[in-house]
Design a protein around this nucleic acid. Sequence first.
DNA 1: TTTTTATTGACCAAAGTGGTCTAATAGGAA
DNA 2: TTCCTATTAGACCACTTTGGTCAATAAAAA
Lengths: 192, 192
Amino acid sequence: MILNAAFHEFAEKGFEQASTNAIVKEAGIGKGMLFYYFKNKQGLYEYLIEYTLDVIIHDYLEQIDTEERDFIERFKQASRLKMKAFLEYPALFRFAGTFMLDEASIPEKLKPRLEKLQQLGYAMMYENIDTSLFRDDVDVEKAFQLIRWSIEGYQNELKQRLQGENLAAMDFDPLWEEFYEYLEVLRKSFYS
Amino acid sequence: MILNAAFHEFAEKGFEQASTNAIVKEAGIGKGMLFYYFKNKQGLYEYLIEYTLDVIIHDYLEQIDTEERDFIERFKQASRLKMKAFLEYPALFRFAGTFMLDEASIPEKLKPRLEKLQQLGYAMMYENIDTSLFRDDVDVEKAFQLIRWSIEGYQNELKQRLQGENLAAMDFDPLWEEFYEYLEVLRKSFYS
DNA sequence: TTTTTATTGACCAAAGTGGTCTAATAGGAA
DNA sequence: TTCCTATTAGACCACTTTGGTCAATAAAAA
């Protein structure tokens, strides 16, 4: 499918280095189709970004339950949602990972939408958190960050460990077990 | 200088996508020079990797004082060394960051050297650590990882915050202050 | 049938590729 | 001054790739 091939190519090479020839080849379609559906390379790229932002908002961020006031529990919940969305749209999420980090790679006209998403992301993760759960001898803001970095670090490590594996045919349960153990340690350490 | 231009280009585009034309242009030299000093693109690339591994070992890893048995203190020390080395060879370190994560990007003949470096890195960080400092209701191995992920997370965030700033003319003291505050929180949380 | 929509791939000029080679130059030795 | 050798530049090479167009169709709808 066109979009997946495009996600893949842009994620791997970035906008300029990405090749429309490579995309149609991987998608198994004729060159003409790409420019029949999209004005040009830039148009395709912008469509991909908009599409990506929409998916992240609707299939991930908006699903987070902000009624959960326990920060670690909320993060755990969000991690499951993220993984679920990732397994559904792996190419899209890999693409998201590349352009979200790099201001320069996103067209001016889409920056406001990205900012909106970032604000929403922040809200869904940090709003309505019960700060009284934390031990009172540490700054809660700092604890937030440390927990976030810890979890992201674990997830990155996982990503590397699973590089090249067949994700579809995998049993994730033991990994979730391991993840929960780490969360337990965080709970013991940062909560009172 | 040739090497810096090459580090930059390879870091940004990877081996295949990197352009020798772009390198000589950025270096401000004639095309001939590159192939006078190096056999070909591949030869240049391999030289850069070997050079990088040497610098990381001698200017960073081997400088870490393994007499320091406090894990967090050791990490703090290592962070200062890393930053010092980074400020001295920024292009080289950015290059290192790209190819160290990606098995496929390193030539077969250099893989043993990379493995040696990884082993050394592990040893310099985790050997001779006083595990009795940790609280005894959590698995020390897990605490190691969480602390590592936390610190790496902070450093990544810094990297992003400082993107595009003039590092040479910067005052890092307040950042180190902030960093130490995070280390204090880690200490309170993971040590007994 | 006719009309509309979807699809292909040959084709284009332009740009870029890694690499070679000749010719010029610089700097030191004689 | 005259050589000689170590550097250096960049024009040039054959070849690939680039984003994009377009006329020819195949398929579907009317």
